[in-house]
Simulated assay, not measured.
Amino acid sequence: MGEVIFSKTYVGDALSSWQVVHEMSTHIVGGALVVRDSDRRDWHLLRLHDSAFLFRMVRMRCVLRFLPTTTTNFYIHHYGSLDVAEIALDGTIINRGISHTISINAHPDDTIEIDVSFLSCHGSLSIGCSDNGRPVYAGTGLEQFALLSVLVETFDAYPELSRTPAEERITLVDVGGQGGLQLKWMLRADHITPVVFEPLSSEATVIRQTLDRIPGAQVVEKALANTSGPQKLYITAGSYCSSLREPNFEILQNYSVARVFNVVSMQEVECVRYDELFRASAVPSPDVIKIDVQGLEYEV
């Protein structure tokens, strides 16, 4: 998979970095993270967040021991409805999911080593339990496995994200891209060419850190409008509510979200028209346009 970009091994207390997100409980015993499921019908997952995982090839090597009370399989989840892999206590691969490679090694000390690689299109990794192909299930509330270590490595995913020819990819124009792409587009990163407009330099820099991993992606550090030239941007307490329009507090005072629209500063930003950029060959012709500009949608 090429040169390692990120590498970290979680052992001992560091295993607590894997946080419960769905119907599980954990505790450290003898340096291992003991995982218990729940009797409630739901997902049963632990999750780890890091932007280093997003739009990368990820390798995970998990060393664990199934316990006498085990009733489920070890499960690696991507996000949404995407499975990575599910492995039974005897090492049988129940589901290969979206894994590119997967290998299982059983050791004499009753531990099992699961080594899997996959394309990650989300900034998190998830592990937990699944009941023979059913990641949503009602469990027993008993201890399922003891996790001894997890190695996470990431690699450049350019070949995997380029597998759809450029001419067949969907050009997504995201106007007001603070926070990055919507989840439904993130999970289809190998099928899209995103063009994101974000006028705030600090926010544009954050978006570039991960979006630049998608072939052909662009982050345009300007505001899209109906006229080109400088305009005043009202930067609000909740920066995602910033707009070229001044907030209307006569109306907003009637809503609990009013405080996030408080103007904390104003900044002059450069505005552009998309058709002008297109004629200058600076941007491609869009297939899909998503607009979230706090009241300036009509002008855009």
Rank of each mutant, 00 (worst) to 15 (best):
P215L: 13
L233Y: 14
S243T: 07
G176K: 00
G176R: 00
T171A: 03
G180A: 03
I192P: 07
Y240N: 15
P194I: 13
K184N: 06
T171G: 01
G238L: 12
F197L: 08
L211M: 11
A217R: 00
W185L: 05
A166L: 13
Y234G: 00
V206Q: 07
Q178S: 13
P194Y: 02
F197H: 01
E198S: 11
A225Y: 08
P199E: 13
L211H: 01
L172A: 05
P194F: 04
L233F: 15
T164S: 11
S242E: 13
S228G: 15
S202R: 15
S228W: 06
V206A: 08
L181W: 01
G177C: 05
D174H: 13
P194T: 12
T205N: 08
D212G: 11
T164E: 08
S239F: 10
M186D: 01
V175L: 07
K222F: 04
G176H: 01
F197C: 10
T164A: 06
E168D: 15
Y240W: 15
S162R: 05
A223G: 10
N226C: 12
Q182A: 11
L233A: 06
Q209H: 06
G216K: 03
K222H: 12
A217C: 15
L172P: 05
K222T: 13
G177K: 00
N226E: 12
V195G: 06
Q209C: 10
D190N: 14
A217P: 14
G238Q: 07
D174W: 03
M186V: 02
R188G: 01
L187M: 13
P215E: 08
W185S: 02
Q209V: 04
P230F: 14
A204D: 11
T171K: 04
V175E: 02
E168K: 14
I235G: 02
T164P: 08
R208G: 02
A223K: 07
S202K: 13
P194H: 05
T193I: 14
E198A: 12
T236M: 04
G229C: 06
T171R: 03
P199M: 10
T210W: 12
L161R: 03
A237G: 05
